[in-house]
Amino acid sequence: MTSVLEIENLSVSFTTPDGDVEAVTDVSLSVGAGECLGLVGESGSGKSQTFMAAMGLLAENGTASGHIRLDGIDLLSADEKKLNTVRGDRIAMIFQDPMTSLTPHMKVGRQLAEVIIEHQGVDKETGRRRALDMLDRVHIPEAERRLDMYPHELSGGLRQRVMIAMALMCEPEVIIADEPTTALDVTVQAQILDLLMEVKVNLGAAIVLITHDLGVIAGLADRVAVMYAGRIVEQGSVADTFASPVHPYTQGLLACTPRLDVETEALETISGQPPNLQSLPTGCSFHPRCPHVFERCQAERPLLERTPSGQSKACFFNAAEAAE
């Protein structure tokens, strides 16, 4: 499969009054058309910043190095003008918090229409009609009426549908969904996930699903990448990763996710605190919390390597060797 979006050796760092902080380190990823990549990690693991960099939306004190290519266009080196021809049109993002992500003083219809007016140069009338179509497509009831409403008049679930409609306006090749369900009620979460599934099937776009919720990944993604302290520690197909995770962190994550298919007495937790990016542990960043830690982990950093099973992991520990 040819990949639409390719991230190569991406590093993102932020300058703060207390020194530089590297939020993303040497990350390489790719997604193909019609594929859904799940990106999992704790808050602060750098999963969102990776794609903020792709959208050119890093905070002002942030800088990115490496390459992010969308169909050959390097988004990192593109200037604001060039970037604006791509984002919203060929790559779109759905944000975490639908409550605050829509402009409060603009009617929903106008906010939707302006995307297509900007990128395809259609007139206002057409823009409005296309907005209406799109609201229908994301199953917003009484779409006509909603067009003339302000965001605060809509419920959280509806607003997230509007956000999705907004991302779909120009039928982009890549859709990045950053925690699309986190701020919503559980029942609404399921509906939004169904909608995303539908988009994936119908649109054939590449979807990146950023979340800390493994359940969301299991339902929607084809492949999964796990991030810890700014690095990818495990990557593989959803089926393999969920059946036999190879990195201790992923194993821990899975162990603390409640499952219906496996009987457990008590939920596990991962010991210790998420790492402080300003003073990362030596060697493998996960070693202070790792149940399998040994001397080498403290001295040397493991690289992401393929395992015989076709998965990738950044870990020295080898379960097979240890069992011997």
Binding site: M55, R87, L102, E114, H119
Partner: peptide
Amino acid sequence: RTNYVRTARAKGLPFRM
């Protein structure tokens, strides 16, 4: 710095707009 300005930028609108 608000989220909705971030959304607007993500839409590819020119900064002036």
